[in-house]
């Protein structure tokens, strides 16, 4: 078994494009769920809006790439308003129901056969939309970059832009969460009525949280579109949202570093278990009757699930969480 290759591949993952995408998605969820207590189960919907906006505006309308980015952000605000206006006055569960449905609605519309010319239908959009973005890159798209771990020029550019965005958003979140604005969000998470009784417009603050978290989710969609070769509708299924939640909970909710480190660990575990299992099967240390190549893809998620269970039992606050805060939940 080539342990060096396994380690190299596994250490590539926590810095790679997938980790960027999920870190961004989880930062948005952290604002909504971690700090405000809003159950947005449709983060993938915002990602799909972002990805399809850049894809369609370049591939179909032949607009400049930044128009697609602007369109994605504008549509994300519209989506957040659509989701928030009817549900944010109600109990938290209603937002959860509506958002989980909205993500699916967007995916199913985009993959509809009648829209095949526009959104690519079930085959998705080919990667032509990426060209203007990579034209800005100082790296050669095909060349390999890095030391010991190598990335293609494409991925390297997406990673640099993506991690920069992660840094900017995390710094913004850090500023917000020590401000009076952040104090109101955290108070809403604890008890809306108390906040209302102190003269704060709770509805509007929940709306702001939903919109800003959705905008960050939209950036995750941009990273998804530019980081992968194409925009595929079935890449935007509900499981993406739940993986982002898993990453967030691994790292610790309501912590600035939680979504970032959580996403990195999530992708390390996924890749490492995948590589190890494949190695073990190849060496016949695990019989191929017991575990086939296609099954490995599923087993790695079982391992992540197991890891999450252990985490909930032994460190329920997540890696960066505060045990003292969790103890107060007993009330």
């Amino acid at each position: 078994m080539d342990y060096e290759l396994i380690m190299r591949t596994s250490l590539e993952a926590p810095f790679g494009v997938d980790a960027v995408i999920y870190a961004l998605a989880a930062i948005g969820i952290n604002l909504q769920f971690g700090y405000t207590g809003l159950l947005n189960f449709g983060q993938v919907g915002f990602m799909a809006v972002g990805a399809y906006s850049v894809g369609i505006s370049v591939n179909y309308y032949h607009w400049p790439w930044w128009v697609g980015v602007g369109l994605g952000l504008a549509l994300s605000v519209v989506l957040a308003l659509l989701l928030g206006i009817p549900t944010l006055r109600l109990r938290a569960d209603y937002l959860a129901i509506v958002t989980i449905a909205s993500g699916e609605i967007i995916r199913l519309i985009m993959r509809a056969a009648v829209l095949a010319d526009f959104s690519g239908g079930s085959a998705g959009l080919p990667g032509n939309y990426r060209d203007p973005f990579f034209a800005l890159s100082p790296f050669d798209r095909g060349a390999e970059y890095g030391f010991w771990i190598d990335w293609s020029g494409e991925n390297f550019w997406v990673m640099i832009v993506g991690w920069s965005l992660v840094a900017i958003f995390s710094f913004g979140m850090f500023q917000l969460m020590r401000s009076p604005w952040g104090r109101i969000l955290k108070a809403i998470r604890e008890d809306e009525d108390a906040v209302r009784s102190l003269g704060k417009n709770v509805y509007w603050y929940k709306m702001q949280s939903l919109i800003i978290g959705g905008l960050i989710g939209c950036f995750a969609g941009f990273a998804f579109a530019y980081g992968k070769g194409s925009v595929q509708p079935d890449n935007y299924s509900t499981s993406v949202t739940f993986f982002a939640y898993a990453a967030l909970i691994l790292g610790g909710t309501a912590r600035i570093w939680g979504p970032i480190v959580g996403s990195m660990i999530f992708w390390f575990i996924i890749t490492f278990s995948d590589q190890m299992l494949r190695g073990l099967v190849a060496e016949d240390l695990i019989s191929s009757d017991l575990l086939s190549g296609t099954q490995i893809g599923v087993v790695r998620f079982i391992i992540v699930g197991l890891g999450l269970m252990l985490l909930v039992i032994f460190r329920p606050q997540g890696i960066f969480g505060d045990k003292k805060e969790l103890a107060l939940d007993a009330h």
Binding site: Q175, L176, S179
Partner: peptide
């Protein structure tokens, strides 16, 4: 500081 942009 309770307004978003000022909070930043």
């Amino acid at each position: 500081g309770e307004r978003f942009f000022e909070a930043l």
